Measured scan of single mutants.
Amino acid sequence: SDIKVHVGDITVELHNVSEEFARLVEEALRLGLNEEQAKEWAHKALH
């Protein structure tokens, strides 16, 4: 599904992702990663 993740003043739109993936992206953003890094990190975490 499509999910918007908000962290501080950052909003990341995720398309066709699981809630778990979105949660991992949100966690990575909170750790200070940028959007691209957060998506990559979440992807690796799920595989």
Rank of each mutant, 00 (worst) to 15 (best):
V25T: 03
K39V: 15
D9Q: 11
L14P: 03
N34T: 12
E20P: 08
E27S: 11
L46G: 08
L46V: 13
E13W: 07
G32R: 01
L33D: 01
N16C: 05
E13N: 12
L31H: 13
I3H: 15
E13H: 14
L14T: 04
I3Q: 07
E20C: 07
A42F: 01
D2H: 11
G32H: 03
G32L: 01
E36I: 13
R23F: 11
A42G: 02
A45D: 04
K4S: 15
E20V: 12
A45E: 14
S1P: 06
E13T: 14
S1L: 12
K44G: 12
E13M: 10
K39I: 13
K44F: 09
K44Q: 15
S1C: 10
V12P: 04
A38V: 01
R30F: 14
A42Q: 00
E13R: 00
K4E: 09
Q37H: 09
H43L: 10
V12I: 14
L29F: 02
N34Y: 05
E35W: 08
A38Y: 00
V5K: 00
K44S: 15
L29P: 00
A42P: 01
A45M: 13
D2K: 02
N34E: 09
D9C: 05
E13K: 02
L46R: 00
K39C: 08
N16S: 09
L33P: 00
A45T: 14
F21A: 01
V25S: 00
A45C: 07
V25H: 02
N16F: 07
H47M: 14
A45W: 12
E19H: 13
L33E: 01
N34Q: 07
E40Q: 10
H15D: 05
S18G: 07
A45K: 14
V7I: 11
E35H: 06
L31W: 11
G8M: 06
H6F: 04
H47V: 13
S18T: 14
E13V: 15
E26M: 13
K4R: 06
I10N: 06
I3P: 02
E40C: 08
R30S: 09
W41M: 08
H47L: 15
Q37T: 07
A38T: 00
H43I: 11
V12S: 05
W41Q: 07
F21P: 00
A22Y: 06
H43Y: 14
V7S: 06
A38E: 00
A28I: 01
E26V: 11
E27V: 14
H15S: 09
H43D: 13
L14M: 08
A38K: 00
L31V: 09
E19P: 15
A45R: 14
E20K: 10
R30C: 06
I3Y: 15
I3A: 02
K39F: 11
V5I: 15
E36L: 15
L14H: 04
N16D: 11
V25P: 00
H15T: 10
K4Q: 11
N34P: 08
H6E: 15
S18V: 05
N34W: 02
F21E: 04
K44C: 07
A42H: 00
T11R: 03
D2I: 15
A38S: 09
E27H: 14
E26T: 10
F21L: 04
V7K: 03
V25W: 03
H6N: 15
L46Y: 13
L46D: 07
T11Q: 08
D9T: 12
E27M: 15
D2M: 11
A22G: 09
D2Y: 13
V5P: 06
V7L: 08
V25D: 00
E27T: 14
H43R: 11
L31G: 10
K39D: 01
H6S: 15
G32W: 01
L24M: 12
K44Y: 12
V17C: 04
V5T: 04
R23Y: 10
V17A: 10
E19I: 15
K39R: 10
E35C: 04
V17R: 03
V7H: 10
V25Q: 01
H43M: 10
L46I: 14
I10W: 06
A38I: 01
